[in-house]
């Protein structure tokens, strides 16, 4: 990085030098009414928009796109910006910090409290489609499931906690991602075995070359495999 860098600086840039990037999804009312309020208050945006430099005198909004939209609607010639670096991580955290993106947590490792907080957030979002989901039930069943091995979030739909494929599961994808561990061939801990399906248990019995597992019930399979 050269000495002549603007990264980290608050700058008063020309609007026409800034590419709006992805733009804001804020409602027209919010943009227009805020623009009016901004003009009435003297036209200085005390909360800056966040940009990166794409080439000389060219910038692109990476976060707080709402401010840019408001400045534009207010007819401002210049807008106060903070120049950020051009890394992906910076763009991502900037969007989350400016409440334009929802942070995600790793469901493979998340604590029970974190899962509960994420589900509560979703349930309370209007239109999330999760109204009617029982928070303690969903939290518990997801927490107790062998989620460290999940390759996708789909197994949640088998937990009978009211979260079905489609809108509900998609809502969960907003806040959770997974980094699965490979499923070991041998699991002997009955509490983990208990959380697998009978089909998965049979697969495991086959791999371990056990015999006579085919007609067993789940509880018997767990007993067989835990030995």
């Amino acid at each position: 990085m050269s000495t002549f860098t603007d990264i980290g600086n608050l700058m008063y840039l020309y609007l026409d030098e800034i590419d709006p990037g992805e733009g804001t999804d804020a409602a027209e009312f919010l943009v227009k009414a805020t623009a009016q309020q901004l003009k009435d208050a003297g036209g200085r945006n005390w909360v800056p928009t966040i940009v990166k430099e794409t080439s000389k005198d060219r910038y692109e909004v990476v976060g707080n796109a709402f401010i840019y939209a408001v400045a534009e609607a207010a007819g401002l010639e210049r807008v106060w910006c903070i120049v950020a670096d051009d890394s992906e991580a910076t763009a991502a955290i900037t969007k989350t910090l400016s409440r334009e993106a929802i942070p995600q947590i790793n469901l493979s490792k998340a604590s029970r409290d974190d899962i509960q907080a994420a589900l509560q957030y979703l349930i309370e979002q209007p239109g999330s489609g999760l109204t009617g989901i029982k928070l303690p039930v969903a939290t518990n069943r997801i927490d107790e499931a062998p989620r460290q091995y999940w390759k996708t979030l789909d197994p949640i739909t088998n937990l009978k906690c009211g979260i079905t494929k489609g809108k509900k599961l998609n809502a969960l994808k907003q806040v959770f991602y997974v980094t699965p561990q490979p499923m070991p061939d041998v699991i002997k801990d009955p509490t983990v075995l208990q959380t697998l399906t009978a089909q998965e248990l049979k697969k495991m019995a086959k791999k371990r070359e056990l015999s006579g597992y085919n007609k067993l019930k789940k509880s018997d399979l767990v007993e067989l495999l835990s030995q």
Partner: peptide
């Protein structure tokens, strides 16, 4: 099972 989930949640 649902009752159990409720009280596990309370206990935790």
């Amino acid at each position: 099972k649902t009752a159990r989930d409720y009280y596990v949640a309370l206990a935790k």
